[in-house]
């Protein structure tokens, strides 16, 4: 299973084909073909483009999440921090009359502070990261509601959201940004010591401490990055919707965990790939799109998605589990 752990010099172990790492590609392709064959309007440029457009926002909530899951930490606050990006956009644009180019970095910075604090608590007190981030999720979600309700559906002026519609080569720039981000992280995860050490930390935390890595610092930084990028995605999403909305980022963490785990990451750490996480997010959205096109009720979609999550985690436990 070398493929999931970044680039290595050596030749693959002979005769071993790793199903796990190709699973997501296979699933996505199968679902894609199925929908293309059975749904009339599916295989059109505009439909695929619009799915990718949706994916491109949510993907940013999955970036930091993937970095953290590689180290065996789970960040459940990504959904609400995604929403926070939107709430803060409203705050800065409506209340402080800031231009969008200032609002987005500011929103990211504030979110980063929250992520940094969460990371600090997790590492300093050796807390379960899921527990801490559930608390963060609740608190932030509450704040988002309060803020966004104050705006009362007020629209962001066109001049401020216009940039989101920019296209390059006939493709929305956020899609290109997503692809570039995934590619960049993938390359760094495979080849640069800064990100490659995440796999080492995830494989055996104590070993990395023993040989002098500052693993706690790395974790705190990744919590920070996770929060900032989630807020970035949410801010962009808000620009697309043209107004802050409370549903932005709602239950996104479920989709993101599912995406990362079916993308080959393990909740036990040491495995994961940014590119495959992106495919995982695409798969989740494709599935939702497909289910909607089959007129499947959104609540039933929720049942199906939740079941896939539990199944994926179960397989993870069976394959990678040091059972507890």
């Amino acid at each position: 299973m070398t493929a999931n752990t970044g680039r290595t010099l050596a030749v693959r172990e002979k005769g071993k084909i790793n199903l796990g790492s190709w699973l997501i590609l296979f699933l996505t392709a199968a679902l894609f073909v199925f929908l293309a064959l059975t749904r009339k309007n599916f295989y059109t440029y505009s439909n695929i483009h619009s799915i990718l457009y949706e994916v491109s926002f949510s993907f940013f909530a999955a970036v930091g999440f993937t970095l953290l899951i590689i180290m065996g930490e789970l960040d459940l606050s990504v959904g609400s921090l995604f929403g926070l990006g939107g709430a803060l956009m409203g705050l800065f644009i409506f209340n402080h009359r800031l231009p969008v180019e200032a609002a987005i970095p500011l929103a990211m910075a504030l979110a980063a502070v929250i992520g940094f604090a969460a990371g600090l608590l997790v590492t300093a007190f050796r807390l379960n990261s899921m527990m801490v981030t559930i608390g963060v999720m609740m608190a932030v979600k509450g704040y988002n509601w309060i803020q966004i309700q104050k705006f009362g559906g007020r629209q962001i002026p066109r001049a401020q959201w216009n940039f989101i519609t920019v296209e390059l080569f006939g493709v929305k720039w956020t899609i290109l940004a997503m692809l570039a981000t995934a590619l960049l992280f993938e390359i760094f995860l495979a080849g640069s010591r800064h990100l490659k050490q995440l796999y080492y930390i995830g494989d055996n935390f104590s070993t990395t401490i023993l040989y002098g890595l500052n693993a706690n610092l790395v974790k705190v930084l990744c919590f920070t990055v996770s929060a900032a990028l989630s807020a970035f995605g949410g801010a962009l999403m808000t620009c697309r919707l043209k107004h802050p909305h409370v549903t932005v980022g709602a239950n996104l963490e479920i989709g993101v965990i599912t995406a990362a785990v079916i993308g080959g990451a393990s909740i036990f750490g040491g495995r994961g790939s940014m590119f495959r996480t992106m495919l995982g997010v695409f798969f989740v959205f494709l599935l939702q799109n497909g289910m909607t096109s089959y007129d499947i009720n959104s609540y039933v979609q929720q049942i199906i998605l939740g079941s896939i999550l539990i199944l994926a985690i179960y397989l993870d436990v069976r394959i990678n589990g040091k059972r507890t």
């Binding site: 527990m131 909740i267 609540y299 929720q302 939740g306 999550l309 539990i310 436990v317 059972r323 507890t324």
Partner: peptide, 18 residues
Amino acid sequence: LGINALIATIGVQYIGYG
């Protein structure tokens, strides 16, 4: 099955809500 209690019950919460 030995699935992490947090994830398992969050999943069931999600499914149950749906």
